[in-house]
């Protein structure tokens, strides 16, 4: 059974990559002869990089991916450190930070769409308090819509990073802490210069999970902005969906091949760590 699934994965990936070098529109190809007939080399990729919509999508992915990853890491680690101070009610705080992760991106998107709604949400509230010129119109502002996606994404995802980091922190030997204290190293420096480097494997896996999740972002954007206003918050997943099923199949496969490449690049640090571990053993 798992063999079949593996076959599906490898075969499917191969099919998608192969199709991206053809000009198929609605009918998929199956045989090498058909592939040969439809072969157009890199034409789909040239078309892709000439498409302004794709450029917007990939730029947005860059913005969302980097901001989301950086903030999720900084906030997640920081929260984990605070939670590690033997605080009371740790369970309560953890439950609060992690519950959005149980919710779907669609739900997340709709909630934040409501809060950031310029007519009724945060903007209206602050203006109602007397600050008449206050503006928080990210959802309807072409320049800012992708940053609104980042805010909602962080709300959903930082709890996970916090939980993973906390697990990592708890895995650090107490001896390290005692040694650092005897040497008179301040606590914050111990965290940054000793504990953080020791957590490298955790950091790498967390990075891979967070960043590859960012590449896949789809429902969040659909729920929050539907890719708008205009095309301003488009991401590659939407591009794939909206080419693949409307008669530009090969274009969609080319776009998804780029996504596959992006994920492969993200996986590299993790491969290095895993491979390095095996060589040491």
């Amino acid at each position: 059974m798992v063999f079949i699934v593996l076959f599906v994965f490898i075969g499917g990936t191969f099919w998608t990559v192969a199709s991206s070098f053809t000009n198929i529109k609605t009918l998929p190809i199956f045989t090498p002869a058909e592939f040969y007939d439809a072969f157009v080399g890199m034409a789909q990729y040239q078309r892709l990089w000439r498409s302004s919509r794709w450029i917007i999508s990939i730029t947005n992915l860059g913005i969302y991916g980097s901001l989301y990853t950086i903030f999720a890491f900084v906030i997640g680690f920081w929260l984990a450190v605070l939670m590690d101070q033997k605080i009371r009610l740790e369970g309560v705080f953890r439950t609060i930070y992690l519950y959005p992760f149980a919710l779907s991106f669609i739900v997340t998107g709709h909630v934040w769409a409501w809060i950031m709604n310029p007519a009724f949400g945060l903007e209206a509230t602050v203006r109602g308090l007397g600050w008449e010129t206050f503006s928080f119109d990210w959802l309807t502002n072409r320049e800012m819509s992708i940053y609104a996606v980042v805010i909602a994404g962080l709300w959903q995802g930082t709890g996970l990073v916090m939980a993973l980091m906390l697990a990592g922190l708890r895995g650090i030997d107490d001896e390290i802490w005692r040694a650092a204290r005897i040497d008179g190293i301040p606590k914050w420096r111990t965290y940054i210069q000793i504990v953080l480097p020791m957590m490298r494997p955790v950091l790498v896996t967390t990075f891979v999970i967070v960043a590859s999740g960012a590449v896949r972002v789809y429902d969040l954007v659909i729920g929050l902005t539907q890719g708008g206003p205009g095309l301003s918050s488009q991401v590659p997943t939407i591009y794939v969906y909206e080419t693949m099923f409307v008669g530009a199949l090969a274009q969609g496969t080319a776009a998804s091949t780029i996504m596959l490449l992006a994920t492969a690049v993200i996986l590299i640090p993790w491969v290095v760590v895993e491979f390095g571990k095996k060589q040491q053993a």
């Binding site: 994965f9 099919w15 997943t237 091949t257 996504m259 994920t263």
Partner: peptide, 24 residues
């Protein structure tokens, strides 16, 4: 080898598999 493929497989973006699964 099988194990490694599984591991990598869990990271493949869904979009790559969307159409093949439509066909299947």
């Amino acid at each position: 080898f099988f194990f490694t493929v599984l591991l990598v497989g869990s990271f493949v973006p869904y979009q790559v598999m969307l159409y093949p699964l439509v066909i299947i």
